[in-house]
């Protein structure tokens, strides 16, 4: 390995310090708490006791998977339209997409709650239109809608970037070789923008599976997701150890899914 100069080591120092203090140390704490009991003795009990949370894991997983798939189905065509639009329209669409990201996630979720609440804007509109009164808050749909609403931009942006960067000659070559519009999309454009899709899926899936705020506000307390469970464990000093164990398992699950997804992208071996 190349030897680093004194100056470059000084320049690296603040970042290294930050990583040690706020990333490495907390992780070590999580691992420590996950494998110790209340008296500080080593134990596997925290991990083995997690089987009682398997239902929560499955529910979190399915909610976030559904949200991710819907984000992809909305996000890819949206990104495609943006990439195809004129420069001016493109910039307007980009700002519209990013605008919500400048507002805190908590505030966005609160506003969605206000809209969907019983007697909120949406239900009163429905009533005015003569439709039956519907309940949104507290349904699976509301929680998933919250995830989609909060994380959709993270799906669109990487896909949009890979579409914009894609050399137009690949599409032209496909047409030259006999592809009409849809065939060009599925045989060339989609496979060549897979890296964008993979990072979009990651950036939606990971925050969705670990969220606790969205499920609490929009789920009306009826859905206990992994994030909620972890939060609850840490509000009580006694259950720190269980919380740490759940966090650790989830971290490993996320790492595994990232690994699988990156392999998928590697297999396609795409240079964008």
């Amino acid at each position: 390995m190349k030897k680093k100069s004194f100056l470059s080591r000084v320049a690296d120092a603040p970042y290294l310090l930050w990583m040690i203090l706020f990333i490495v140390a907390p992780m070590l704490f999580v691992i420590y708490f996950a494998f110790t009991d209340r008296n500080g003795g080593f134990t596997f009990e925290n991990i083995t006791s997690l089987s009682s949370y398997s239902g929560t894991f499955v529910m979190s997983l399915s909610f976030s998977l559904i949200a991710t798939v819907i984000c992809l189905l909305i996000g890819y065509p949206l990104a495609y339209c943006m990439a195809k639009a004129s420069k001016k329209a493109r910039n307007i669409l980009l700002v519209l997409l990013m605008l919500p990201m400048w507002i805190s996630l908590l505030i966005r979720t609160y506003s969605l709650m206000a809209l969907l609440d019983n007697g909120g804007l949406v239900s009163s509109l429905l009533v005015k239109m003569g439709l039956p009164k519907l309940t949104f808050i507290g349904t699976e749909g509301a929680v998933i809608l919250g995830m989609i609403y909060d994380f959709l931009p993270y799906m669109v942006l990487p896909i949009y970037t890979s579409l914009v960067k894609l050399d137009v000659r690949y599409a032209e070559a496909a047409q030259d070789l006999g592809c009409n519009g849809p065939k060009t999309l599925f045989r060339v454009i989609l496979p060549l923008t897979m890296p964008g899709v993979v990072s979009g899926v990651t950036m939606v899936f990971v925050p969705s599976i670990s969220t606790f705020y969205i499920s609490q506000k929009l789920g009306g307390g009826s859905f206990d997701l992994i994030g909620d469970t972890i939060e609850r464990q840490f509000q009580n000093a006694v259950t720190y150890h269980t919380g740490a164990a759940i966090s650790l398992v989830m971290m490993i699950l996320i790492l595994l899914s990232l690994f699988v997804m990156n392999r998928f992208a590697d297999k396609e071996e795409i240079i964008v």
Partner: peptide
């Protein structure tokens, strides 16, 4: 059919 400038072979 066309042989494109810089070929445009499909990298995938």
């Amino acid at each position: 059919n066309t042989v494109f400038q810089r070929y445009a072979l499909f990298p995938h």
